[in-house]
Nucleic acid binder design. Structure first.
Lengths: 226, 226
DNA sequence: ACCTGAACACCGTTCAAGT
DNA sequence: ACCTGAACACCGTTCAAGT
């Protein structure tokens, strides 16, 4: 789009949409979606907004701050369980965690940043509040619910990263991995070779589901022991 | 050290130690230990070895390959449980996992690369073999042991990353985090504010220990249900 | 044949100079 | 006063030219 031919006051219909944190984060998320995390550079985001890299620093303190803002926006997209119901708490737990995982997986790289620096934004608090509510409804003692929430968040991030890797290039990674395990010397790695199939079995959804249930069941047992 | 004054055959006492993959990885690990992951650049590693960055590509395919080689070397440092004993399996499990976590935490950034791309090296196989052996000794069904090993590896990586963050700058992150939770509006986040203390309670060792036991107990329950 | 200096195509961030 | 072009100090990787 060429600059407007006639000069106008700056406030009067600017030739291009004015920059804002929103616009910067939107542009960055679009690049993330289409080209991956490593393509989200200050320079490329700036170019997408038709400006120079220096202009971004008005709205974002540095690249890490931009990444954090993107992370917040992604977390805000996750729908909550609005009516926590003790009779259906485990179903609600899986539903919430699956949505978290899917949303993170749809934004490759964001889960990795969430691991390196756990979010404390409002959106993250809403998710934590919701998660705690479900776990308490399930009968976990407050301390156990708090610790379980932390561990489950870890599992969500990890599952999202695995889903990233699966989408990006290696759709049948499990097959290659099983071959790798099975191809080892049975003398040196008897268990790995004997259980190669089990080590890679289950689709990612099932593995995630099992891990979540194990954590919850283990924590429920802990609560019961008091 | 200046070049030798007298010319000699190249094979005869070279002026500086000849490069090798070992030497490159050693230099990179030294930089990692003293300056962190982001300081591990091809150029800085090369400089530490008194050469130019191009020379590294003879021994390492690219930076990512160097990182992987470093990761392998770190995993190889973890001591195994040499005599798996069904009577002491849970103690052995915690001992092994604690050593894995501590070793990873002593090399900041390596755990993050291990999450992004799980290692399949020989050293990683030895750890998996050992871990599987302990879990099977504990009575887990093979499928459950395999899945538990995966989940436990996730927890180890995560605990190591948390330990990294604690060492590097924020020793009392828990305090700040609790304040952050407690400072929220009780109307909007009743559970988070009410349980702020529980959310951050326990030292990292205890939290890790509890999470590991929860996974194991949940998986044992799963085995028992069949 | 092997090694590497120099170049290429990028980075994040700063700040003086312009409007 | 606000914005940004241009510069600074880095990157990873390649390859032609040298030994």
């Amino acid at each position: 789009m060429p600059p407007t031919g006639r000069r106008r006051s700056t406030r009067d219909r600017p030739a291009k949409a004015p920059l804002s944190e929103r616009a910067v984060v939107d542009a960055a998320l679009e690049i993330l979606r289409s080209q991956g995390l490593s393509a989200v550079s200050m320079r490329r985001v700036a170019a997408a907004l038709d400006t120079g890299p220096a202009s971004l620093y008005v709205y974002v303190p540095h690249r890490e701050g931009l990444l954090r803002a993107m992370q917040d926006r992604v977390f805000a997209q996750v729908g909550l369980e609005t009516a926590v119901d003790a009779a259906r708490w485990r179903v609600q737990l899986h539903a919430l965690l699956d949505r978290m995982r899917d949303t993170l997986a749809a934004h490759p790289g964001i889960a990795l940043t969430a691991i390196a620096e756990p979010p404390t934004s409002e959106a993250a608090l809403r998710l934590l509040e919701n998660l705690l509510g479900i776990l308490l409804a399930g009968g976990l003692a407050p301390q156990d619910a708090a610790w379980a929430a932390d561990t489950l968040a870890t599992l969500v991030n990890h599952a999202a990263i695995e889903a990233d890797a699966r989408d990006g290039g290696h759709p049948d990674r499990a097959v290659g991995l099983r071959r790798h395990f099975a191809a080892q010397s049975p003398d040196r790695f008897p268990l790995v070779t004997a259980h190669a199939a089990q080590l890679v079995s289950g689709d990612p959804d099932e593995r995630f589901h099992v891990a979540v249930d194990a954590v919850v069941d283990g924590m429920l047992a802990r609560t019961a022991r008091r």
